[in-house]
């Protein structure tokens, strides 16, 4: 996979398998359209998302990152998203503190039936990141073209 040199934003969305991924699937079944800039990475639970994933995404050329999971109380594993909430409340503030624009990192609760919310969030985040322009912070220029096996 290579990161193309374009001004069009590239956004990674870490989606929980049980809620947001299903919601995105439902958005597709409903034939609703969301921007192709959002690239979904399926994770078993939003609690699986390591804050280092976000740093690595910025490092390897993403302009925005979303972390989406079940609403609090709805976690398939009972408690996963409560840990997510604590972790990313801190991480969002730490990223802001380090000069990353708050518009580049989003955490959202999207359930399996909220296809519309997924589409709206994807559109909203894409518009926001497009306005901010390409991300230069934390970006590793030497590795802009990643090799095929990565």
């Amino acid at each position: 996979m290579s990161v193309k040199e374009t001004n069009d934003p590239k956004i990674i969305a870490f989606c929980c398998n049980w809620c947001t991924y299903t919601g995105a699937d439902l958005a597709g079944l409903n034939r609703s359209h969301y921007p192709e800039n959002v690239h979904i990475v399926r994770v078993p639970c939003s609690g699986r998302v390591n804050p280092q994933f976000i740093l690595r995404a910025f490092r390897n050329g993403c302009d925005g990152v979303m972390v989406c999971g079940c609403h609090p109380g709805d976690c398939h594993y009972s408690t996963g998203n409560y840990f997510t909430r604590r972790r990313f409340t801190l991480m969002k503030r730490l990223l802001e503190y380090n000069g990353i624009d708050p518009g580049r990192f989003h955490a959202r609760w999207i359930s399996g039936s909220e296809a519309g919310k997924f589409r709206d969030t994807a559109e909203e985040v894409t518009a926001m990141v497009r306005k901010l322009g390409p991300n230069t912070r934390y970006r590793e220029y030497a590795r802009r073209e990643m090799s095929a096996d990565e």
Binding site: R56, R59, L95, Y138, R139, E140, Y141, A142
Partner: peptide
């Protein structure tokens, strides 16, 4: 997660991590 090279992005990421 992070390379061995000495670059601004890797150093910043080390600091935050």
């Amino acid at each position: 997660f992070q390379g061995k090279q000495h670059s601004r992005s890797d150093n910043l990421i080390f600091g935050v991590t």
